[in-house]
Design a protein around this nucleic acid. Structure first.
Lengths: 134, 134
DNA sequence: AAATAAATAATAATCATTCCTATTATTATT
DNA sequence: AATAATAATAGGAATGATTATTATTTATTT
């Protein structure tokens, strides 16, 4: 027996979603849902936090943004290309970096029989603004 | 002027803390606070979740255990040596691995003027139990 | 054994996030 | 342009993880 599901999912235009997308795409600091909410409020005063979360999830599903977890809170990133983050323990800033080294993938596959999809890396330390001179 | 602070912090014995330490040290699955709480309850029925969290934090501060964040919940690890985790997206299991390659430290220091303390890496994919054959 | 102060149990509070529902807004159809 | 269908919203309640509060208990010192 063959069962075919058609999931018809009509995504309609919404001003709120446009604004949320615009905010994420214009922010480099990996904002939290709350930051996005406060920013969106400036132009859409009645917007609700639930709307922000719902649309962020939808934008993530459609591949337009990426969610990253910093300790236990979600942050949102316009950069959907594979990349990693430096986190300064002094200022909390997240800095995007691209490490193009893919050599660990085959190594992990060989050593642990584990198929790697993606590597989420948080490199913790002190950024140049806060480093003591060495 | 020289100011010297003596922070006298008398840590007293407690059965609850001993049990919590014992549970973490005998569990390889990176248990959550709740799991530890349920396990501790078996021998200390009146233990409270607050006690579990308070002691886990204290054990973390004293360097006896390590906290890792898996998406948005905290897990606890007896392994305080630098290591990383493979996370299977099917079963959610976390597998400890040690990647001894420290070559990214000087590279990041050079390229980004960023002093690396530690690298937290979550390698997401499918473990051997759940991998399709390739 | 009495005095002390750290640790606890129980519970309230908080914070991020998700869920619920009556209402509103977008889009397709007449 | 009006109508119908239904996706999206605002507002608020609910949830789940974690932290804070406080009266009581317990380990240690005197």
């Amino acid at each position: 027996m063959i069962i075919i599901y058609f999931l018809i999912f009509a995504v309609r235009f919404s001003h709120q979603r446009e604004k949320i997308r615009e905010i994420v795409y214009n922010t480099n600091s990996h904002p939290t849902a709350d930051k996005i909410f406060l920013e969106a409020k400036k132009s859409i005063p009645k917007i609700s936090l639930g709307t922000v979360y719902r649309n962020l999830k939808q934008l993530e599903i459609s591949g337009e943004i990426k969610t990253i977890y910093d300790d236990n809170i979600a942050r949102y990133d316009w950069n959907t290309e594979p990349h990693n983050h430096l986190k300064c323990k002094n200022c909390g800033d997240l800095i995007d970096i691209v490490l193009k080294d893919k050599s660990i993938h085959p190594k992990i596959k060989k050593d642990f029989k584990f198929n790697v999809d993606k590597v989420e890396m948080f490199i913790i330390g002190t950024c140049k603004k806060h480093a003591k001179q060495t």
